[in-house]
Computed example of a mutant assay.
Amino acid sequence: MTLAQPTRPLPAKRRLTRKQRRLTLIAAAGAVLFLAAGLVLFAMRDTIVFFYGPTEIAEKGVQPGTRMRLGGLVEAGSVQRNGGQRISFSVTDGKTSIKVGYDGLLPDLFREGQGVVTEGVFEGAGRFKADSVLAKHDETYMPREVADALKKQGHWQAGGSGSPAAAPAKP
Rank of each mutant, 00 (worst) to 15 (best):
I98R: 06
V91R: 04
P143G: 06
V62D: 05
E56T: 08
V146N: 05
A28H: 06
R111W: 07
A28P: 04
A43H: 12
A27W: 03
G84Y: 02
A125P: 07
K13M: 13
L70Y: 12
T96P: 06
A125H: 14
A166F: 12
L35M: 13
V49P: 02
R86P: 05
M44R: 13
L25N: 06
V62N: 06
A149H: 14
Q5A: 14
G113P: 01
G115C: 03
L105D: 07
G65K: 00
Y52A: 10
G71P: 01
R15C: 08
I98V: 14
P164A: 02
T2M: 14
E145D: 11
L41P: 03
D46V: 15
E123T: 06
V40H: 06
G38K: 01
Y141R: 02
R67A: 14
A31F: 08
P171Y: 14
K129E: 10
R127K: 15
V40N: 04
G71M: 02
T92P: 01
D131F: 14
L33W: 09
V146A: 04
V32S: 12
E112Q: 03
V79T: 12
T17E: 05
A76N: 06
S90Q: 10
A27S: 09
A28L: 13
G65D: 02
G84K: 01
T2I: 15
G71L: 05
K99N: 08
G104Q: 00
W156F: 12
Q114R: 15
A130H: 01
R8M: 13
D148K: 09
V116T: 09
L33F: 14
R67N: 09
G115Y: 00
T7Q: 15
Q5D: 11
L23R: 10
A36W: 12
